[in-house]
C-alpha cells in the first residue's frame, strides 16, 4: 500500500466522576467507624457475623436481621507487602495489606497492616506471621470511611 510509515501512538486519558450510594446498611457501618466501632450483621440462617455489615448473606441468600459490634482486634490470617506502583494507588509502596479475622466476626476483613519498619521488606515480613494478633489504629479525625482505621498493628497480649 505504498510507502511504509512507522505506526504512531496517540496519547489520551479517561477520568470520570461518580457518586456511589452506600445503601442504609453501608451507611450505618460507615457511621460506626466514625465512632470507632466495627459493625457486622448476623445471618439468621447460618448465624455467621458478616463484616463489613451486609444487607444479605452471600451464602444463604437471606437478609441479615441483627447488628453485632465486633472487636477492633483480631488474628492476622494472611498478608502481603506491596512493592510496586500503579495509577490510583492510595499509599506509597512499600506497604502491607492483610486479611484480619476480627474477634467476633466469621469472615475476614481486608485492611492495611502497619507499625512495622519496612526499610527491608524481607526483614519486615519475618516480623509478621499468619496467626498473630493485630489491633486497629484509629485516626484522630474520622469521617465515616474505611480509612478511618489507619491500619492494624501487631500486638502482644
Amino acid at each position: 500500500m505504498g510507502e511504509e510509515i512507522e505506526p504512531r501512538i496517540i496519547e489520551g486519558a479517561l477520568s470520570l466522576p461518580y457518586r456511589w450510594a452506600t445503601g442504609p446498611v453501608g451507611a450505618r457501618f460507615l457511621e460506626g467507624l466514625k465512632n470507632k466501632k466495627i459493625l457486622g450483621t448476623r445471618c439468621p440462617k447460618c448465624r455467621r457475623v458478616l463484616v463489613p455489615a451486609r444487607k444479605f448473606c452471600p451464602r444463604c441468600f437471606v437478609d441479615t436481621d441483627e447488628w453485632v459490634e465486633v472487636g477492633d482486634k483480631g488474628i492476622l490470617r494472611t498478608f502481603t507487602i506491596i512493592n510496586f506502583s500503579f495509577v490510583g494507588q492510595v499509599r506509597k509502596p512499600p506497604y502491607i495489606v492483610g486479611i484480619i479475622e476480627l474477634d467476633g466476626a466469621d469472615v475476614g476483613f481486608t485492611h492495611f497492616i502497619g507499625g512495622v519498619d519496612l526499610t527491608d521488606i524481607e526483614k519486615a515480613a519475618r516480623e509478621l506471621r499468619p496467626g498473630m494478633r493485630v489491633q486497629a489504629v484509629w485516626r484522630e479525625e474520622r469521617k465515616g470511611d474505611i480509612l478511618d482505621i489507619e491500619y492494624f498493628k501487631p500486638v502482644r497480649e
Binding site: 460507615l30 502481603t80 495489606v97 481486608t110
Partner: peptide
C-alpha cells in the same frame, strides 16, 4: 468494591500474593 476493598487490593499481584502466605 469502592467502599471496602479498593484502597487495599493492589492490582492482581496484591490480591494473589495473600494466597501464597495463607
Amino acid at each position: 468494591d469502592y467502599r471496602y476493598e479498593r484502597p487495599f487490593l493492589a492490582g492482581a499481584p496484591g490480591v494473589f500474593a495473600m494466597q501464597a502466605m495463607e
